[in-house]
Design a protein around this nucleic acid. Sequence first.
DNA 1: TATTGTTATACTCTATAACTATA
DNA 2: TATAGTTATAGAGTATAACAATA
Lengths: 155, 155
Amino acid sequence: MGRKDVKTTTRDVRTGSIGWMLKRLASRLDGDMNARLAPLGLELTSFAVMMTVLEHSPLSQVAIADLLGMPAYKVSRALDHLERQGFVARSPDPASRRAHVIAPTGAGVAIAPDLYAVVGAVNARLAEGLSAEEKALLITLLTRMVAAQAARDEA
Amino acid sequence: MGRKDVKTTTRDVRTGSIGWMLKRLASRLDGDMNARLAPLGLELTSFAVMMTVLEHSPLSQVAIADLLGMPAYKVSRALDHLERQGFVARSPDPASRRAHVIAPTGAGVAIAPDLYAVVGAVNARLAEGLSAEEKALLITLLTRMVAAQAARDEA
DNA sequence: TATTGTTATACTCTATAACTATA
DNA sequence: TATAGTTATAGAGTATAACAATA
């Protein structure tokens, strides 16, 4: 052993680090997403809220904030936009006069396919160099990582 | 076939989408990194610059900016911090009087292990639920994705 | 007293581009 | 004319907490 084995950690952060690569991939995502959402008149925050409304409606604003891990004031603003654009509606909650029931309008449901198309396009581009099996594997691994993260949050 | 197969895209963005999970994991990363860097007196931007200096020194500020995909003014500010903290030194470039040669100081080299420890801890936490083989596989897949992204940038 | 939602305000961050010095 | 680096400044985004209404 000429040299002591100090390779406990990779010596080049950029190539070996999961976190570094994750961040790099995610940061490009933002630009890509925004570019594709702009024609639809949406920004990233509104998009995230809209997806949540489409998939979990009817729900309250705190519920949206919880699901997305997003502060309440952002949800409020995003809904302002989305309501002005006619994609969602805030209606009074029969169960509580301080809460709103958020639901997509007809127009909101109508653009859903476009939104899913954006998601599909972005994901396809992300996994461009991977085979179908590799892509499935990646999803499995990422899912486990997200789940572990969520589990830690509760503890 | 009772129902037409419309499952081209997964119907739940949160669980099926590579991009969504990537962003979720990456966003937590920032908080985690900042928490671990705070005791060292560093922020995320300074950290990124410092790592680049440690691994590629000697180099110019534009070189740092290129390697990180970071605007020049950020590099400038980060180096201001790092220089004040005594971790890097700007010295005149013998080859060009307008360029600076950036290199770590003794103190900069001395904290390198701490910085790699942060990277290691964060990565370990990220991959907590994965076996060693899965972790290696994940790194392979992510590396390919990053490479594909870089290739697209050149085209 | 706690919750739902909104908003004002202050703060931080980012980006642009103007600037000096040099090539 | 182009490059290296710095900085002022404007604009965008973020967070805090104060607020009204309701439970």
